[in-house]
Design a protein around this nucleic acid. Structure first.
Lengths: 156, 156
DNA sequence: GTATATAACGCATAAATATCCAATTCGATG
DNA sequence: CATCGAATTGGATATTTATGCGTTATATAC
C-alpha cells in the first residue's frame, strides 16, 4: 500500500517535464512508470502537490507546479552548475578567487549570482577564474559555511 | 448582443479582486454587476482571458489571471508597434510577406517575435519588408485568426 | 494475539467545466 | 432590401475533476 510518496515524486516529475492537460493522460504516463491507480487517487495527488492548471497562452490549459516548487527546482540546476564547474576557492582579504574548469567560470558565476548568497557582494567571471567580492563584515569562513549548506557535497 | 468586451473587463476585475473558486459563484457576481449569461459563456470568457486555477496553498483552488497580464502592458506597446508600422500581408505557400512603412520593418519584426504567435516560425526584416515563415502545419488563415485576436483593429 | 485507529485507495457518483450545435444578431456587400 | 458571413450566445450534453463512503492494509495499544 505504502507507495504514495514515491508516486507523488513521479507525478511531480512528469508534470514538470511534460505538457499535460488532463488527468487521464497523466494516468497513462503513470502506468508506464509502473504506478497503476485510479483517477480518484490522482486527483487527490494533484491537490496534495498543489498543482494548478494554467493557460498556455493560446489554445489550451496544462498542469503546472506552484511557483515555489519551480524556483527550488531551477535552483537545483544552478547548484549543479556550481558542482560541475568549480575546482577551488582561495581568499585574500575580502576577495576570493574561484578556479573553475576551462570555460565554466561564466556558468558558475551566474549560478552564484542567482543563488544570491548573502556573503557575496558581486562576482566577475573570466574563462576559468572568478573574482568574488565579499560583503562588508563577511569573511572566508562565513562564505564557506554558506557553501556547505547551500551547495552540499563540495569540499574546498 | 455586443456586450462581450465590457463583460470581459468586469470578469477580469472580479477575478483580480476576489477569491473565486468556481464558475457558478462568478456567475452570481456577474449578475449583480448586471451581466446575465450562462455558464457556457463564462467558460468561454475565462478561456479567452487565459484565466488559470491555482492552489491557494492549503485547502483549495481559485481563479487567477495569468502572470503575463503584467507583461501585457509591455505587450501593448509591441502591439502598437505592429499597428503603427504594418501596411499589408500577403502569402505564398507557407511564406508571408509583410509590407511596412519605410523603416518600420524592424520594429514590427521585433514585436512579432516578442508576441510569439504560435503560427510563426521566424521572421526576417529588411527596411520596409518582413519575411514570415509559417510553422509546419499552419496556414494563412491560422495566422490571420491569431492576428485578429492578438492584435485587434487591424484589417488585412 | 485482538481490538482500535488511521492512512490509502477504489468505486460510484456528484460537481465543475468545456464543447457541439442551432439560433440570433450585426455588418458588409451586391 | 436581400443575402452572406462572422461573431456571440444558450441549451443540451460530453468531458473532466472532486468527493462520499466502504474496504483493506498497516500501525498502535492493550
Amino acid at each position: 500500500m505504502r507507495q504514495r510518496h514515491n508516486r507523488l515524486t513521479v507525478v511531480k516529475e512528469l508534470i514538470k517535464s511534460n505538457r499535460i492537460d488532463n488527468q487521464d493522460t497523466l494516468l497513462e504516463m503513470l502506468k508506464t512508470e509502473g504506478y497503476t491507480v485510479t483517477q480518484a487517487t490522482l486527483s487527490r495527488d494533484l491537490k496534495m502537490l498543489k498543482v494548478g492548471k494554467i493557460s498556455d497562452g493560446w489554445s489550451g490549459y496544462y498542469y503546472a507546479l506552484p511557483d515555489n516548487d519551480l524556483i527550488s527546482e531551477s535552483e537545483k540546476s544552478y547548484i549543479q552548475d556550481v558542482r560541475r564547474g568549480i575546482l577551488s576557492i582561495e581568499f585574500s582579504g575580502n576577495f576570493g578567487v574561484i578556479k573553475t574548469r576551462p570555460g565554466h567560470a561564466n556558468s558558475v558565476g551566474i549560478a552564484l549570482d542567482v543563488l544570491a548568497l548573502p556573503e557575496i557582494l558581486g562576482t566577475l567571471a573570466g574563462d576559468d577564474t572568478i573574482f568574488v567580492i565579499l560583503r562588508e563584515g563577511m569573511n572566508k569562513e562565513d562564505l564557506q559555511d554558506s557553501f556547505k549548506t547551500r551547495i552540499p557535497e563540495i569540499e574546498e
